[in-house]
Amino acid sequence: MLARVAENIYWMARYLERAENIARLISVTANLTLDLPKGLKPIWSQLIAITGAEAMYSSNDYDERAVLKFLISEPSSQVSILSCLASARENARTIRDVIPREVWETMNSLYLYAKEQAPQAPSKRGRFTFLDEVIRQCQMLTGMLAGTMNHDAGYIFLRIGRYLERADMTSRIVDIRSSNLLPSTTATVATYENLQWMSVLRSLSGYQMYRRAMQLRVQRTEVLRFLFQSDVFPRSLSFSINSVNNAVGFLPNHEKAQLIVHRVKRQLDNAHIDKLKQAELQMFVDQLQIGFAQIHDELQLAYFSGLGSAVAAA
């Protein structure tokens, strides 16, 4: 497999996963506004913090409409759903010979749909249909790829890209959502804490699976343990990193990459989530994210440079 092609597949998968995650995040936050008591509003600026795009956000306006425009349709924002889908499509376009034709056609029509609908999507009425459609189409693409593409080296890079992005996004959502989802007014804390954790789970489509797997009421420690360490929930950090680990194992000359993945995995497995207070939790997430970045750097060096890890290591 060509080094450049491997890299394009990897990024296509990352952008697709990112578009889907951002759609989920917006959808749940918007849903939460409907459940909150009058006078309480979720802090929309958090969504921008989660995507790590504060620097790109040029407006001083952090109201619902401005933030949603930035995250859905703003072409200059590299994290908007529209630009993620455009990047996924652009990567797919350069590897049209590798991905199944139906996948390209679906990705192309998803992009065309988003381009047409995104300007209306920030409105209250248009939003849910749009976000649902994006999520559904992304899931469909995942299914089509699994069902029609050769599970060869290209597919391995696809999986690595998807799960690395997912791990990264889940860790960001937990990081920011666990701290201050709601303004800390005394009246709200007790009554709406559950609501907060339910919304975290829902951003990851994890509420139902949490109830099945944990059979516990929704509370901080259990939710965190579920999102970090569940081996069965496909959007948890452990599950994602295990998937990266399995995929990396199929690559040629993978020893060095696997060492790094193993280290991240150990950090996750050994963490005492219940003991982590808010500040420690954030440090822990920072540590994990450094690990994700190191995994990416090693992939870049060993596979995307085209010289092979033997040469790259020398």
């Binding site: 497999m1 060509l2 080296a153």
Partner: peptide, 28 residues
């Protein structure tokens, strides 16, 4: 795609001293 062969750009290929053409792959 239809032929099932690689689509390469100039930067994907090299010709070292042995005067053969190689493509840069994930395995070297």
């Amino acid at each position: 795609q239809q032929m099932g062969c690689e689509l390469v750009e100039g930067r994907d290929l090299v010709v070292p001293d042995d005067d053969c053409v190689y493509m840069k792959t994930i395995q070297g």
